[in-house]
Structure formats: structure tokens, C-alpha cells
């Protein structure tokens, strides 16, 4: 049965999945760029999980003596104006970004896929109403929408996640719906009907798995943009509140005042954001190529 089974997909692509490392080695050889992206993401996840072991500094403790300290052996990336170690804040910031990105993408994609699948497959009034509603949402730019949501909900971690997930829904729902609309008319769906399959089972077994490839590309692209949106919200003071280290707010705090006097305060958080988003996009493209059986040579 066609479920989302990476093992089967890999076997079909010619990977040796008998040993656990066979699949990994196959992926690295076939998609070196994607593997590079995976390494970047792995670094980020590692930093997020083991932050206390990577840096000995507390990202929240201030030190007046080290205010605006330059990068040095003691403080690798320097310190901000309150004397907090920048490296520690970036490492702990990875944890925050990861939580926000994973939670909001999961939430947004789940809701978006449900709406897209139901609307696209069943059509009718449900489709009509949800689509008009999504169009309304999409008439505002993503970021404006997120700002409105975040402002209405108030700055906190769960609210930031909710606000970002909310703005992801229209894009996901519309891409999935468009895909479902074309899949619905394919002869293999008709064949499933001729077999006597129920509509719900056809939607889940035949239509949904075929939206997997675009969904993964979309989810990874969204994963990158959630990090950017979170940074933007925090930049505007609507995201995760002080004193939690957020890459976006680290940028915003220092961009105006210290970009000339202490440029490391701007450069390193900015680099962290771009680096991670870049890695996610590389990985997403490789996953799309691998999961679409027709793209295999």
C-alpha cells in the first residue's frame, strides 16, 4: 500500500537499505548538495539540543565589564552591549528558532493539507467557502498577516508559533488543492473507484501520497521562511519576548545602534539566519528529487 515509506522509496532508487548506513551513503553520493544542507541542519539541531555543552556562557547573564567586547579568545563572537556572550546567544537561539520552525510548519501543513485535500477532492460548498477565506488571507502580504496575528495575540512563544502557522495555511492549502484537483481526474483514481474503493480511502491512499513531493518542497521552503518570519516578528518586538535569545531580535537590537561601532552584533546573527535557511533549501530540493519516483534516472 502506498504510504509514505522512505525505505521502499530508497530501495526503488537503488539504495542498499540493508545496512543502516547504506541509505545514508546513497543519499550523500546521489545528492551532495542536499547532504551539505543536511549537515547544516544537523549542526543547527545539534546546537539546539546540546547548547549547554557547546558554550560555557549563560546567554542570559549580563556582564558590564564585557559590554560590546570584540570577538576574542574568551568571547568568540564578541558580546552585546549588556555583555552577554554572542556565541552563547546564537547557540541558544538555534533552539528557539528550531522550536518555532518545527511547530509552526507542522501545524500549518497539517491544517493546510487537510483543507486542500478536503476542498480539492470533495469540492462543493466546503471548497467554495474555504477558498474565499484563504483568498482573503492571501490578499495581505504574509508578513503583514503574521504581524497582525502576533500583535493581536501578544508576544509569547506559543503565540508566535500560532501566528506563523496561521499564515502558512493558505499557501499549503492552495498548492495541495491544485495538486489534488489534477490528481482527482487521473485514471488511476477512476480505477480505484471501479475497484469499489470508498472516496475517503481513495483520497488517503491514492491522492494524498501523490502530493507528497510538492508538500516536502513546500514544507522545507516554509521551514526557511518561518525562521525569517520569526526573525522579522522579533525584530519588530512582536515575537518571542526578552530575555530569550532570538536571532531576529539580536539583529534588530543592534542593527540601528551598533552596526558601525560593533558590526559583529549584526553580522553573526544575520549569518546564522542565512546559513540555516540556505541549508534547509538545499535539503528540500534533494528530498524532492528523491521522493518523486519519476525523477530517478
Amino acid at each position: 500500500m502506498s504510504t509514505i515509506d522512505f525505505q521502499t522509496e530508497l530501495t526503488a532508487a537503488g539504495a542498499n537499505v540493508k545496512s543502516r548506513w547504506g541509505a545514508v551513503r546513497f543519499f550523500v553520493r546521489r545528492y551532495p548538495l542536499g547532504a551539505g544542507g543536511a549537515v547544516i541542519i544537523a549542526m543547527m539541531v545539534f546546537a539546539a539540543l546540546f547548547a549547554p555543552y557547546i558554550t560555557m556562557y549563560d546567554p542570559l547573564s549580563t556582564n558590564a565589564a564585557a559590554s560590546l567586547a570584540r570577538p576574542s579568545a574568551a568571547h568568540w563572537l564578541g558580546c552585546d552591549f549588556m555583555g552577554r556572550d554572542l556565541f552563547a546567544r546564537i547557540v541558544y537561539g538555534a533552539r528557539l528558532s528550531l522550536i518555532v520552525a518545527v511547530c509552526s510548519v507542522t501545524l500549518g501543513c497539517t491544517v493546510g493539507v487537510s483543507i486542500g485535500l478536503l476542498g480539492g477532492y470533495l469540492g462543493g460548498w466546503f471548497d467554495l467557502i474555504t477558498q474565499r477565506f484563504l483568498e482573503m488571507m492571501q490578499s495581505l502580504p504574509l508578513l503583514v498577516m503574521a504581524i497582525v496575528m502576533a500583535a493581536a495575540l501578544g508576544p509569547s512563544l506559543p503565540n508566535t508559533i500560532l501566528a506563523i502557522a496561521f499564515v502558512l495555511v493558505p499557501t499549503v492549502a492552495r498548492v495541495i488543492r491544485a495538486n489534488v484537483l489534477s490528481l482527482r481526474e487521473r485514471p488511476f483514481v477512476e480505477a480505484a473507484k471501479a475497484i469499489g474503493m470508498s472516496e475517503r480511502r481513495i483520497a488517503i491512499r491514492h491522492v494524498l501520497p501523490n502530493t507528497l513531493a510538492p508538500l516536502i518542497v513546500l514544507a522545507t521552503a516554509q521551514f526557511g521562511s518561518t525562521i525569517l518570519i520569526e526573525a522579522a516578528l522579533s525584530f519588530l518586538g512582536l515575537g518571542v519576548p526578552e530575555p530569550h535569545p532570538s536571532w531576529g531580535r539580536m539583529l534588530s537590537e543592534s542593527a540601528a545602534e551598533y552596526v558601525r561601532t560593533a558590526p559583529w552584533l549584526v553580522i553573526f546573527p544575520g549569518l546564522a539566519i542565512s546559513f540555516v535557511v540556505f541549508g534547509i533549501n538545499l535539503l528540500g530540493d534533494a528530498l524532492r528529487d528523491m521522493l518523486d519516483p519519476r525523477q530517478r534516472s
Binding site: 502506498s2 487521473r186 485514471p187 488511476f188 477512476e190 480505477a191 501523490n210 507528497l212 519519476r294
Partner: peptide, 12 residues
């Protein structure tokens, strides 16, 4: 079916 390419689910 007529079309042997689209009458089979590519993911099964």
C-alpha cells in the same frame, strides 16, 4: 484503461 501510464498510481 486506455492509457497505461496514468491508470497506475506511480507511488504504488
Amino acid at each position: 484503461f486506455q492509457d497505461p501510464f496514468s491508470s497506475l498510481n506511480p507511488r504504488m
